[in-house]
Write a protein that binds this DNA or RNA. Structure first.
Lengths: 236, 236
DNA sequence: GAGTGGTCTAGACCACTAC
DNA sequence: TAGTGGTCTAGACCACTCC
């Protein structure tokens, strides 16, 4: 039987499940030597594993077992990134990249039901899971909703936690998830090469089930980190 | 400036949007001649477009502009494949591949709340959009629920339409969507090469909001056909 | 400096499709 | 039979990371 790159990939895939997330995977050169195939064939096998989101490849560094976290989105789940990741056994962290008052894009203005002249506080944050870059989120909040919020988020604090501490009760009003080609500037910040498909979500949260609208968030999430699972209705 | 395969792909991508779905795209050989690059580089560009689901490649035949259909899944949408596709401007069709009485797998038995000894009618169907293979669905119904159903579905009839004609009012109770590596036997039936990620959905439908459970369906959907968009809550 | 993954070349054979 | 995409080889240079 001929050893194709698919067979190589399947063989590696079964051995990977016994390795710890983040641990090193055999390199292209090693693999080509071990199985007496060309480097391109060995490379094709590792790329196949990357397409299945089983490994993460870093130029100049190596190939590593992917750390995957189930990101379950359902009506009964809290609208918090950190809580959702922690529930799946991952260690989340957030870094505030930018914070400024801006005129919101039309879709955001409509979603938050703001007047045409209203401005918003826009927060840009990068999320990590177990120290690995994982998500890029942009949040718009009505300006004046929480003047002290930007200061409070300087550390690694959770936006949902801060809103709760301020006396709000954030709840999901609307949520959408799809897979889209990642925009160039997002790809750079998430250290993604090329233009692959990435999870793209948009959410609107309000104060309690019927109170005022609190914030709207757009997120791009690396699919080699998040196994997104969206559920409607109640589990059987 | 060096012409990389990414630049080639971007250039092709912008010209593709002016072409009709299903129309032929430049071949690997033509592309390599036109831009004076090796065939492997031209090939990499076309593979990049395939990863973005902009084209569909068929061995021995050629590369074609993908026919993409938005498949919106939301609480207010009817649980019907054909209705959902038609709403997005696609022409759906269904072919019954297999129909038989079987003991259901545990997850299905639990979902439909059946007794351990209960049997089900299992329908396997292949769905197409504009004549192109698009989905593989397996449906389990309590045996005896609708004795004439299998006969009625011999043609291209809609399961939801038939259930409605039989006096039922099918409604979504629960629905889950995620992306998974396609199993080998599904890949063969959907004419998918390799083991890429494919939409994987499971749904449970009942008679009206509170009536008896009607059916449970597992589906695998080609992502180069369906732009799946999942929504929770009501649109802003 | 050694090793890594990313890109590219110029060939080759294959299975398959369409005519 | 000609053309297509799928696989594979044996090289090469590059940018990058790690030590």
């Amino acid at each position: 039987m001929t050893v194709t790159y698919q067979a190589l990939a399947d063989e590696l895939a079964t051995s990977l499940i016994r390795q710890d997330p983040g641990s090193r995977v055999v390199s292209e050169n090693e693999l080509s030597r071990l199985h007496a195939v060309s480097r391109l064939t060995a490379r094709a096998a590792l790329q196949e594993l990357e397409r299945r989101h089983l490994v993460r490849r870093v130029r100049g560094s190596g190939t590593f077992v992917a750390r995957r976290v189930e990101y379950r989105i359902a009506a009964d789940m809290p609208p918090s990134f950190q809580a959702t990741v922690r529930r799946s056994g991952g260690m989340p962290s957030m870094r505030l990249v930018d914070s400024r008052a801006v005129a919101p894009p039309p879709a955001i203005r409509t979603g938050l039901k703001l007047s045409p002249a209203a401005k918003t506080l826009r927060l840009t944050r990068l999320g990590s899971v177990d120290g690995l870059l994982a998500s890029h989120t942009t949040t718009w909040l009505p300006l004046g909703l929480a003047p002290t919020l930007a200061d409070r988020l300087g550390g690694a604090a959770s936006l949902m936690q801060e809103l709760t501490d301020l006396g709000f009760d954030p709840r999901r009003r609307w949520y959408r998830a799809e897979m889209d080609v990642v925009p160039v500037h997002i790809a750079e910040e998430l250290e993604i090469e090329g233009r692959p498909l990435v999870w793209h979500t948009t959410g609107l949260n309000g104060d309690g089930p019927n109170g005022r609208l609190l914030e709207m968030t757009e997120a791009w999430m690396r699919p080699d980190v998040f196994q997104v699972r969206l559920e409607l209705g109640s589990a059987p």
